[in-house]
Amino acid sequence: MSENGYSMSDEQVVGSALVNKEAFGELVKRYEARLTRYLHRLGVYRQEDTEDVLQNIFLKTYRNLNEFDKSLKFSSWIYRIAHNEAMSFFRARSVRPEGSIIDDSESALEILRSNLDASHEAERNIDAEHLSKALASIDAKYRDVIVLRYFEEREYTEISDILRIPTGTVATLLNRAKKKLQKELSHLTQV
């Protein structure tokens, strides 16, 4: 399966998994690492929690394979499920995402730095620790778009499909998110 699986697109693997459940293992393999990183970035960072949430994501994906809309990218669809599961996890635990979101992506930090249009030298030199703190302190709706856009490197239409919001709203949220993040960073660097 693996050998064939690698040459198949995600959408084709979904078609196979509907007939042969073993094929679903290929999708798990393809998305395990990516979704683990995404969950960390959303604030699910304890290993046992991440494993639980990941299992729920894949089981839900399998149960709902027939709901997959072929006009979307499979990755957008599974990220949507992952996002919803993470939100359910926070609700069930009555917790909000904490820090330590950013610890793995220097390139993402670089992209974010260039997009923040920082006017102060201090803001241009933001590090992962500051950014984690700043991200943790802004609203979840802003954090979600920042993570998807700059850390997961998703297009606006993909973010729209993942969060189920219009593309225009993605742009608005992202714009506001950057301003809020910049404000938080500026506050943190002054302390």
């Binding site: 509907l18 459940k21 293992g25 299992q55 089981l59 399998y62």
Partner: peptide, 22 residues
């Protein structure tokens, strides 16, 4: 298959899970 894939497929088998009908 890695660990998680096996775990997921085991659960699918043990819990007799199947995709919900279209």
């Amino acid at each position: 298959m890695n660990d998680l894939s096996n775990k997921i497929l085991e659960r699918i088998n043990d819990e007799k899970l199947a995709p919900r009908p279209a």
